[in-house]
Design a binder for these strands. Structure first.
Lengths: 198, 198
DNA sequence: CGCGGGTTTGATGATGCTCAAGCCCGGTGG
DNA sequence: CCACCGGGCTTGAGCATCATCAAACCCGCG
C-alpha cells in the first residue's frame, strides 16, 4: 500500500500513534504526473511539498543562455519542493518537473500548519528536512569549489547510487555542472579502469 | 551608539516598541575578537548567532588537502553563524574566524527561544534570515555551475562592493573557488580594460 | 635594514568546453 | 517487416579556462 511508504519515511525521525497517522494521511493529496509535466514553475508560489511515491522529479533553473541547471533530483521516498518559495510564499524561481511518470503525495502549506498544531512532532520532522537541505547545499557548494568533475561524479554515484538508473545522463551532467559530452568522456575513462592517469 | 546598529538591522523587517527593544538588547552578549580568533570550530556545537558590529569574519571549511574554502563573509551589519549546527545542535563542520579585529553581539540559542516567546515577531525575523541564507546558497551554486571565474568575480563585486576593502584578495579567490594567482590575472585583465577579448 | 605576508607575472600543463560527426536504439508509419 | 526517423549517448579535434610551480615584487613592521 502506498501510504506505508510515507509513514515509514516519517517514522525515520518521529513516531506516531494510529490516530496521528490517520490524521496525517487525511491531509495528503495524491497526484499523478506524466513525464515532462511541470509541478511548479517560476512565477508561481509554491504551496505544497511533495513526497515521491513513485517515479522521478527534478528541480532546476534556466539561465539566460537557456541552459538548464539541476538543483536536485527526487526519487521514490524523497521529498521535493522549492523550499524558499514555500517558506516565504513568494514567487518561485525554480522549475519542478517529472523526469518519468510519477506519483506524489502533496502536503499543502495550510495543512502543514494544521499538522503542526495537532501533532507538534511534525515541527521536528520538517525542521530536520530543512537541516538536510541546508547541509546538502553546503556540501555541494564545497564539492564544486574543491573537486574535479570526475571526483564529483564518483561522489555522486556513492551518495545516490539509485539515481543513474532512473535519470538520463545529460541530467546528471547538468547536476554536476558539466556538459553531457564531458560526462561521457569521464565515464569512458573510468570504464577503461583509469582513475585519471593510466 | 552600538545598539542602534542592530536595532536598525532588525527593524528592516519587523518593528518593535521600546520595551521590546530593551528586552531584545538585554539578551545580547558583546564580544571582541582579535584578528585570527576562532569564533567557532569543527566539533563544537554552535550555540550563538553573531551580529557584526564592526570588523570582519569569515566562515569556511578545510578540505583533506588542507585547502580553505570560504562559505561566507560577514562585515558590519551582517549576521553570521553555522546555521546547520545552530538549528540541529549537532557538532559544526565549519570554522568561523575573525579576518580583522571585530566586535560582535551574540544571541544564544536559549535567549533566542526566550525572545520567540516574548516577542513572536522575531520568529518572522529569523525565518527571513534563513530564507536569505537558502536563496544565497542556491544562487551561488547556480553561479558556480554556470559562470566563468571572471563573471563570478564581477557579480561578487556588484553584490558585495564593500567586501574587497576589508578582505585580503586570496580570501575572495577562495570564496569564488579559484586560486589567488588566477584572481590576480583576472583583475589585471579587467584593469587593462579587457572584458575578455581585446 | 631585512624579513614575511600578500600580490603579481610568466611558462607549462591539466581540466573541461565547443562543434561536428557518428552510433545505438526504441518508436512510427508505410 | 522494414525503412526511417529522432533523441540520447559517444568520440575526436581544437580551443578556452584555470591550476601549478617558481620567481619577482611590494610594502608594512620589527
Amino acid at each position: 500500500m502506498n501510504n506505508e511508504l510515507i509513514l515509514r519515511n516519517v517514522e525515520k525521525h518521529i513516531s506516531l500513534n494510529e490516530d496521528e497517522q490517520k490524521f496525517f494521511l487525511s491531509l495528503l493529496e495524491r497526484r499523478v504526473l506524466k513525464k515532462k509535466t511541470l509541478f511548479l514553475q517560476p512565477g508561481e508560489v509554491c504551496r505544497h511539498s511533495a513526497f515521491v511515491v513513485d517515479g522521478a522529479l527534478k528541480s532546476y533553473t534556466v539561465d539566460p543562455d537557456g541552459k538548464e541547471h539541476i538543483l536536485s533530483f527526487a526519487l521514490q521516498d524523497w521529498w521535493i519542493s522549492d523550499l524558499y518559495s514555500l517558506i516565504s510564499q513568494k514567487p518561485a524561481i525554480l522549475y519542478i518537473e517529472a523526469i518519468a511518470d510519477a506519483e506524489v503525495l502533496m502536503l499543502s502549506r495550510d495543512n502543514q500548519q494544521l499538522l503542526f498544531e495537532k501533532v507538534p512532532q511534525f515541527e521536528r520532522f520538517f525542521r530536520i528536512l530543512i537541516e538536510k537541505a541546508l547541509v546538502a547545499n553546503r556540501q555541494r557548494l564545497i564539492d564544486n569549489l574543491s573537486s574535479t568533475a570526475e571526483e564529483r561524479y564518483l561522489r555522486f554515484l556513492e551518495k545516490y547510487p539509485s539515481v543513474p538508473a532512473c535519470v538520463p545522463q545529460h541530467n546528471i551532467a547538468s547536476y554536476l555542472g558539466i556538459t553531457p559530452e564531458f560526462l561521457s568522456k569521464i565515464r569512458a575513462r573510468l570504464a577503461r579502469g583509469e582513475g585519471k592517469g593510466s
